[in-house]
Simulated assay, not measured.
Amino acid sequence: MAKRHNDNMPISDILKEFVESNKLQAGLDKVDVREAWNKMMGNGVNNYTTDVQLDRDTLYVALSSSVLREELSYGKQKIVDMLNESIGKNVIKKLVLR
């Protein structure tokens, strides 16, 4: 670690510094988004979800059901807002259902 303030730093601060210095946040965000999708959507939607990918600020979700894709497309912004709230920060700006 490059900068060490004192020996009594909380572990959360040390980890945050490590993540920032090694540019790992984007990878962690991808994992957080995937977990948030699975938790928020439940088994009904997850059974038809074939892929969840975050690319910059766009979330791409592949669904095996065209009916479900159509149904979810009506509430895209609400889904984006709920996922961002679940993650605790605005990671997603756009949702693409395919």
Results as ranks from 00 to 15, higher is better:
D13Y: 14
M9Q: 14
V67F: 14
M82T: 09
G27Y: 10
L28E: 02
S65I: 08
Y74Q: 08
L83P: 07
K3A: 06
V96I: 15
M1C: 09
D13T: 12
E71V: 07
V19H: 05
N90C: 04
D51V: 01
R4A: 04
M41S: 04
K89M: 01
G75E: 07
A2D: 07
K16S: 10
N84L: 05
T49Q: 03
D55T: 09
V67Q: 07
T58R: 11
N47K: 14
A36M: 03
V33W: 00
K78T: 12
K78D: 10
R34C: 01
L24H: 04
G88E: 06
K30N: 06
V96G: 01
K30Q: 13
T50M: 04
S12P: 03
L15C: 08
N38K: 14
Y74F: 15
L68R: 04
A26L: 08
E70A: 12
E71D: 14
K76G: 08
N22C: 03
M9P: 00
I79L: 11
I79W: 01
G27F: 10
I87R: 01
R4C: 00
K89H: 11
M9D: 05
G44F: 12
E71L: 06
E70L: 08
D13W: 15
K16C: 01
D81M: 09
Y74K: 10
E85H: 15
V91T: 13
D57M: 07
S86Q: 12
V52F: 01
K30H: 08
N22E: 08
D29R: 09
G75P: 04
Q77D: 11
M82Q: 11
D13E: 14
L83A: 04
R4S: 07
G42V: 09
E20M: 10
Y74P: 04
V61C: 06
A2V: 07
V96Q: 02
D29T: 02
D7F: 15
K89N: 00
E85K: 15
G88P: 11
P10Y: 11
M41F: 15
N22P: 03
